[in-house]
Design a protein around this nucleic acid. Structure first.
Length: 414
RNA sequence: AGAGAGGUGGCCGAGCGGUUGAAGGCGCACGCCUGGAACGCGUGUGUAGCGUAAGCUACCGAGGGUUCGAAUCCCUUCCUCUCUGCCA
């Protein structure tokens, strides 16, 4: 959630910043108005409530002194109705504010380039030269089937479309990658966690998936439980509604998890292959940082993801997302796109974001700064999406006969 | 899943429906004491919102209700513990 006081005090600036992300001025005006209405409603409620409390306190005295309370009673009864009325109004104002505020995305950083769509994203640099093929490189689904690594049809039979299964060397490769990523992340100072793969709705509100993006999620029927779309959700919310000590920061976490996404808006995109599935494996990094240190940690996380790709020998590029392509919670995001020779394109394989205090405010994650409690900064990034890494390995390491080499660094994991 | 017990401040632990935001203890911080420490003594020690401030409001797992007034009574719900059942 954005800082409503900031919105109120610096409305021009705030709305200008959010305009870059496609937020209409009107909704911000409405938000500001609802914030002010809530404050007014609260003020009225608290004032009348204070009066009532004062009178109520007299009852004890009156009784002890044996005085008549009937007049007092009448007075309080009048106030009571008023208090109830103001309380209802305050609650309604609160609900209205919350409903709107939770749907407003985060401010992009000043440094984020302006743009409307992914076409306006800015390439920062390329890492490793794509290899020259002296034959037509195949796409991963051809290779996956030919090698018996991926079974698309039976995956669909077991669940539905956009599910698949890995077997044999394909499955081994996934396990190897997970272990490799976790090992490297641990070496870089991240601590490994094994987290629940389902969370309740409060946690999803904390990280920003709910209430706005319910359609992207799988929900467990009859329970307030949802399959996680990324380990970012449980990892970040580990400290939901907690106050950390300054000396505990930064907290660097990593976890493997399957990720479940309904991808409601993506019909027709990447229908072949395992680029876009309802379930995929990912190793995630999440950092809880002191506000002054989050930029530094952001760089570290980008470097970490890039290093993983480099060590696997996978050509990739770093792309700074423009304002219009930035996710709901992110203030800044760098995507890592891996080269896929079969497609002849760079495709997203990791996304590192700094959400600043946006998630922290929603999830109430604070730290003690001297006497004061302050919101932390939260960051997340993939290191890496495992399914897409398998795709990248297959396509980049393919031989003309369809066989696939294994990257050197993975040999000891297989 | 069934039966029972319970959820109070960083922790332990009190709390006849009326100055209880909450006794007492531990812990912690500061001060005194000391050559320095321990002990001892003194003071302080939750969070959030509104307000320049004094202060006001809210919070005793959560949500409702009864009442002039609820940590205390009632309902719902979640969680923990013990026993039984089931299970990797």
């Amino acid at each position: 959630m954005i800082d409503l006081k900031y919105l109120q005090n610096s409305f021009e600036e705030a709305s200008k910043r959010l305009e870059k992300k496609g937020v209409k001025q009107e909704s911000l005006e409405a938000l500001k108005e609802r914030f002010e209405r809530l404050k007014e409603a609260n003020r009225l409620y608290e004032e009348t409530r204070a009066k009532q409390n004062q009178l109520s306190k007299l009852f004890g005295q009156y009784k002890r002194d044996g005085k008549d309370i009937s007049e007092l009673q009448a007075q309080v009864n009048e106030l009571k109705a008023e208090v109830a009325k103001y309380q209802d109004e305050a609650r309604e104002a609160e609900d209205n504010l919350h409903a709107l505020a939770m749907g407003i995305p985060n401010f992009p950083d000043e440094s984020v380039p302006f743009g409307e769509s992914e076409d306006d994203n800015v390439e920062i640099r390329k890492v490793l030269e794509p290899r020259e093929f002296d034959f037509r490189p195949k796409e991963h689904w051809e290779l996956g089937e030919a090698n018996g690594w991926i079974d698309f049809e039976r995956g669909v039979k077991l669940a539905k479309s956009r599910f698949s299964l890995l077997k044999g060397q394909g499955a081994r490769l996934q396990t190897a990658l997970i272990n490799y990523f976790l090992d490297k992340n641990i070496q870089a100072g991240f601590e490994e966690y094994a987290v629940p793969f389902m969370v309740n709705s409060k946690m999803l509100e904390g990280t920003g998936q709910l209430p706005k993006f319910e359609d992207d999620l799988f929900k467990v029927s009859d329970e307030d439980l949802w399959l996680i779309p990324t380990a970012e959700v449980p990892l970040t919310n580990i400290y939901h509604d907690e106050i950390l000590g300054t000396d505990e920061l930064p907290i660097l976490m990593t976890a493997y998890s399957p990720c479940f996404r309904r991808e409601a808006g993506s019909a027709g995109r990447d229908t072949r292959g395992i680029i876009r599935q309802h379930q995929f494996a990912k190793v995630e990094m999440v950092s809880i940082a002191h506000p002054d240190k989050s930029d530094e940690i952001f760089e570290k996380m980008v470097e970490q993801a890039s290093n993983l790709l480099s060590e696997l020998g996978l050509p990739h590029r770093l792309v700074e997302l423009c304002s219009g392509d930035l996710g709901f919670s992110a203030a800044r995001t760098i995507d890592l796109e891996v080269w896929l020779p079969g497609q002849g394109k760079y495709r997203e394989i990791s996304s590192v974001s700094n959400t600043r205090d946006f998630q922290a405010r929603r999830a109430k994650i604070r730290f003690k700064d001297g006497k004061k409690n302050r919101l932390v900064h939260t960051l997340n990034g993939s290191a890496l999406a495992v399914g897409r890494t398998i795709v990248a390995i297959m396509e980049n390491y393919q031989n003309e006969d369809g066989t696939i080499e294994i990257p050197k660094v993975l040999k000891k994991y297989l």
